[in-house]
Amino acid sequence: MSSAIAIRLHEVRKRFGATEAVRGISMEVARGSVCGFLGPNGAGKSTTIRMIMSIILPDAGHIEVLGATALDAKDRIGYLPEERGLYRKMRVAEFLRYMARLKGVPSRDIDHRIATWLERLELPGVSRKRCMELSKGMQQKVQLIASVVHEPELLILDEPFSGLDPVNARVLTRAIDGLRAAGTTILFSTHQMRTAEDLCDRVVLIHRGEKLLDETLEGIRRRFDPRTLLAEPMEDASAARAALRHLPDVTDCAWSDADRALQLRLDEAADPHGAMQQVLQAVPMRRVELRRTTLDEVFVRLVGGDQQVLAAQEVAGD
């Protein structure tokens, strides 16, 4: 029986000792969509994903994956765990063949699929190498191949971009785009908002085991109304700043090197279009624009009050 929903969680809870890692999360991931599963470190993303995969079982609630449980649908699901690893002494092709057989790929197709994926992920000539001979980035790509070699209907990627350099991250992004185009449902966790913004149709944000946000990107942009104007004055920026900071709707005005413009933070009740008019009337401007809300801003707004979380993000180098 084929449903429009690939993953359905209802009031799922999981406790480890005194810590309640997941607190009643409900969510749905539509077939063929790309869903970003966001949250700071320790938010409960990996625990939720492990429960979706039936690697651990929830204490309460219900999980449905491809119309069944993940155990029943294992051969139709691809999974790249956060804790990545390979058999160090195994050769790459041997490892991938082993994983493909476990996933039920017909023997006659295995070598062709492995060769295709090695080429697609720019890993030429590694099939005879032992896994321990590969660089970390190459190992990560091999692990991705292990999760997609059986052409899964649903692909779950836990922090797929962590530890990848920009070049390899781009290769991975292309691969995910290709899988999306082929109709694969993709759920991936990350705390790299930019990546999520580039790839996702929908975003679920959790924090401390609770869902804070579950919406499409467009919905998020509408919901989190922009409150920042970028204004590039024709002449002296200091004088412009002094004039603009006293406008009634502006709560803060500062120069941004990155934007090469003044950043004007607006009052919560302000009308952005009216504020733009006021700016143009106050000082001659080369440009005035309403800055687009980023997921970063949404993230910080939703979980940013937690200083510990921010500190953890900094330590993690995000």
Partner: peptide, 15 residues
């Protein structure tokens, strides 16, 4: 298998 972190990769394919 535990120390090389391949365990969870395996558990995605087998129970």
């Amino acid at each position: 298998e535990k120390s090389s972190r391949v365990m969870e990769v395996l558990l995605s394919a087998v129970s």
